[in-house]
Design a binder for these strands. Structure first.
Lengths: 138, 138
DNA sequence: TCTTGAACCTCTAGTCACTGGAGATCGTAT
DNA sequence: ATACGATCTCCAGTGACTAGAGGTTCAAGA
């Protein structure tokens, strides 16, 4: 049995975040001491590690809740879990695609100005003001 | 002179968002009709287009406010503007890097499970539960 | 046993960039 | 004159935390 601070140290999840996860229903409410302080066991640590890992991979709280639900039913098909994972993968890929387009445009804009002139003639500002100066949609 | 609805249509920025930009100081408060409705001119349209374009490129409201500030001083060096743009570029590149790592990990996790088994043996769930199954840090 | 001080508790509010709704008023076409 | 869509302000909600105030508890040392 260990305190919330100890759990925080072991998982690298901040204390208010742990309480937030509890409030959102991702973490079961743990036992309490007589003085009302939370005391966790190995199961709590495992659960929080799962959540942390999933959050690091960008899963939403909602998706994580669904994954935890599935974990609790070892006899159910895991198709749902793989669906959630592949949805997350598509999401990540879409974000990468969009960011690459932005990167290209930002490189183009930045190249146009060496930073030595006056704002009057700044290509950065001109590009932002006039969308026609862009090469592609974004 | 045109209404907020017309401005919204022309810029593809939603009406509440336009009001939000005004409240945040990015847009000057426009003239009003006798009945208190906003009426915009070409300058308002131009300004909002600038903001929209910068937001599409991922600049924060704060960064945009700084860029607008600079726009208003044509005689100042544009080094600051290029700095803001290159900071934004680094930011975008950092995000891409991180997302690529996540993508790799998600592909690996997804590959391990065909979705036909039971959750009990699901590699997706097992991977999330046990960080040691990951190939790299993320 | 007592005291200290770090750790913990709850509750509220703030972050960013919007988005949506309620309820009231305005503008314009017929 | 009337109808009705557009607009007004104000307030609350989103996601995933984060921070602070003000009070209580735990554990170690004297």
């Amino acid at each position: 049995m260990f305190s919330i601070g100890e759990l925080s140290r072991r998982t690298n999840v901040k204390i208010p975040t742990i309480r937030y996860y509890e409030e959102s229903g991702l973490l079961d409410a743990p036992e309490r001491t007589e003085g009302n302080q939370r005391r966790y066991d190995a199961a709590g640590l495992e659960r929080l590690s799962f959540i942390k890992h999933a959050r690091d991979l960008g899963f939403s709280i909602e998706a994580i809740a669904a994954l935890i639900e599935l974990q609790g039913h070892p006899d159910r098909s895991c198709a749902e879990a793989t669906d959630i994972a592949s949805a997350q993968l598509s999401d990540v890929r879409a974000k990468i695609k969009r960011l690459r387009a932005l990167e290209k445009e930002l490189v183009r804009i930045s190249k146009g100005c060496d930073g030595n002139g006056m704002t009057e003639d700044c290509y950065v500002l001109a590009s932002l003001a006039d969308h026609r100066l862009c090469e592609r949609e974004h």
